[in-house]
């Protein structure tokens, strides 16, 4: 059936097929979990109105289908999801998909910035530490890593804010852009970057420490392997050894971790976005829980599940591309 497709494509399609049941299971699980929690959208709405009579509440419930058995609600929900219809947000008075799309960009920007900084700086520092193992440089890097690793991101966020916004006044304290400044073009880009510096730092440092430690261990392990000795016996210089023989192999476990940790970074962005009042998915999730905005919450979870699955899929593809030993067929 798959005779004429290139192996990488077959592999990709197979991995995608495996991802679909995962997403469906996540959605069913989350739906049921949220239903178990006391209170629903109508409770929250009525609470905002300052109370209402039982007949009105029953009418609202009937209107939103909340009076149906839970299996019927689940079925209706899944059918709507299949066409990417997340329903209506009663808090924002907008379709959930509109609310989500407004917020998605900020979160993706934050995550992309944090992960790329954590990854590149982590592997670079890790490799340097490993090549100078047990020297003063290594000790400095390792201790720094340990400090980053041990600092909770909420604490780091508050300290950064205190120093760079409150004391020094160099960076804005929160938000994604300066309101009422109406910057355009490069001014706007620079404005957004300035707003992202501290959240990115707060989110990335702990992951930087992860990658640093793993990369250091991995490089030290690979540097002792036979094929590195072979390359040395061929007369290769240290720099060449590092790039072609050591790094190339030492990166593989770090990339695996990158894919696995993506979901925790997404989780971490909830805290950071809330502290820096960044209008992203994390902050939205927090508000939706507080306001019992179930449709929005389910939408966020669905979107996050998709993002995580897609990223894991991409990591697998990257890994298959990088590790010649993985058989695609």
């Amino acid at each position: 059936m798959t005779l004429h497709m290139p192996p990488i494509l077959v592999y990709a399609l197979r991995r995608l097929a495996q991802a679909i049941p995962v997403v469906i299971l996540i959605m069913i699980g989350t739906f049921l979990l949220l239903k178990l929690a006391p209170g629903d959208t109508v409770d929250a709405l009525v609470g905002d109105m300052g109370g209402a009579d039982a007949a009105f509440i029953a009418r609202l419930r009937a209107e939103y289908g909340l009076d149906q058995p839970i299996w019927v609600q689940l079925w209706r929900y899944m059918v709507k999801l299949a066409s990417f219809d997340f329903g209506w947000s009663f808090v924002y008075e907008q379709p959930v998909s509109t609310v989500l799309m407004e917020r998605l960009g900020t979160t993706l920007m934050l995550m992309a910035a944090s992960l790329s900084i954590a990854f590149t700086a982590g592997i670079a520092l890790g490799a340097i530490a490993a090549r100078r193992a047990y020297s003063a440089t290594d000790n400095l890097i390792s201790v720094l890593g340990l400090v980053f690793y041990a600092t909770p991101s909420f604490f780091l966020s508050l300290m950064l804010m205190l120093v760079f916004s409150v004391k020094l006044g160099w960076l804005p304290v929160g938000g994604i852009k300066t309101i009422a400044a109406f910057y355009t073009g490069w001014d706007h880009v620079w404005d957004v970057i300035r707003h992202l510096i501290m959240p990115t730092a707060a989110l990335s440092l702990i992951y930087l420490a992860f990658y640093l430690r793993l990369m250091r261990a991995s490089v030290m392990e690979v540097a002792d392997l036979d094929y590195v000795r072979t390359a040395r016996a061929k007369g290769a210089k240290e720099g060449r050894l590092m790039i072609h023989h050591i790094m190339r192999n030492a990166l593989l476990p770090v990339i695996t971790l990158l894919g696995l940790q993506f979901s925790t970074v997404l989780g971490g962005s909830i805290v950071v976005e809330t502290i820096f009042t960044l209008p992203g998915l994390g902050q939205l999730a927090y508000q939706s829980v507080v306001q019992r905005d179930m449709n929005t919450l389910m939408g966020i979870i669905f979107l996050c599940a998709i993002i995580v699955v897609v990223v894991n899929f991409l990591t697998d593809l990257l890994y298959a591309r990088l590790d010649s030993r993985i058989e695609l067929a």
Binding site: D226, T230, A233, K234, K237, S324, R325
Partner: peptide, 22 residues
Amino acid sequence: RNLRGADISMIFQEPMTALNPQ
């Protein structure tokens, strides 16, 4: 380095691990 691999070369024991897998 100039001698190694050119004038003096070495054959190692483990053909499994002595070549870079990537």
